[in-house]
Write a protein that binds this DNA or RNA. Structure first.
Lengths: 169, 169
DNA sequence: TAGGTTTGCTTCAAACTTGAACCAAGCCCC
DNA sequence: GGGGCTTGGTTCAAGTTTGAAGCAAACCTA
């Protein structure tokens, strides 16, 4: 099959997206590194834990929520644990499993870092968008996520299913 | 000043964007790693070089175009040079400078990898968007790039200027 | 034209990410 | 209830990214 190249419109959109997303991630990473001493993903780990009952989540659930690989999460949580922001417990119901728990100190760090983070996101993104554009942004990327969810990466045919496992109290 | 938190709409948009952009980058990285043996940024380096007269660019111009740091580019070009896809020449007009040149082999690798890459981008993104959404995407992220261009990261006041240096033939 | 500053790029150490093993605990099914 | 497969998670080596130095060539400017 002959390649369906991008149209000029699509090219421009793609380039704009790539440039902006790189700049945006860099900006956020730098800001959080400065004010909280950690990169964006690490902050997101704390944030995710903070929003969940008991502030505890199975490693795999956390990884799935953040769309990152398990080894990456293992490494990150190890660092956060060393810093005292997260504690690790083993899951009682499933001896294989382990659970990450946000500590009080982790919660404190998160709360202290949150305003600066939100301000950065606002300044870089939302302050520049109209309300309609906010809606457009959500629609576009929700659609992209749906398309990518669970597809291996190419021509796989793995039927995808979601487990709703409890966080193992 | 009290924090201006994100509204529910903004929250949803932000989460959708983060999730999708992570998934998208991962998908592209994996595809290119498989089919071209290199991550997305490396591919972009080749692509940028291919679009420019003489297929040569000063390191800094290249880094600016890709929105990546100089050390990162140095490392990447070193690898690409080792693979024979890029050659490095020193700039005659400015003895400090060095120039990256896309080799014929690099061009060949690029051309061979391009269709698969475009197909991935299409499948993940453009095939799911209406023409209006393509326009919206461009507008939103062009605006974000403009906002972020040249700002250090926070409260700096550095007036930004662009040099239009020739690529040092 | 000497001295100090800037610019262009690289080097370095430390942190992070990746994919491929690896391992132990559950699951299945006879 | 003992193989064999799957699942949950970690470990490992190799590769990449980062920010801080470092270094040499240009650029002032007196």
């Amino acid at each position: 099959m002959t390649t369906r190249w991008l149209s000029p419109d699509e090219q421009r959109a793609w380039r704009a997206y790539i440039a902006a997303s790189v700049l945006l991630e860099d900006t956020i990473d730098r800001q959080l590194q400065q004010e909280a001493g950690m990169p964006h993903v690490y902050y997101s780990i704390l944030a995710n834990l903070s929003e969940v009952p008991e502030r505890r989540l199975r490693m795999t659930e956390l990884a799935e929520g953040l769309k990152i690989t398990r080894p990456r999460l293992t490494y990150a949580v190890a660092r956060l644990e060393k810093d005292g922001l997260v504690r690790r417990e083993s899951c009682q119901w499933d001896k294989r499993g382990s659970v990450a728990v946000l500590t009080d100190e982790g919660m404190a760090v998160l709360e202290q870092a949150a305003p600066g983070h939100v301000e950065t996101v606002r300044a870089a993104l939302f302050d520049r968008l109209t309300p309609e554009q906010v809606g457009q942004l959500e629609e576009i990327f929700t659609s992209v996520t749906e398309g990518l969810q669970g597809e291996g990466g190419g021509s796989e045919e793995v039927p995808w299913r979601r487990r709703s496992s409890p966080s193992c109290s």
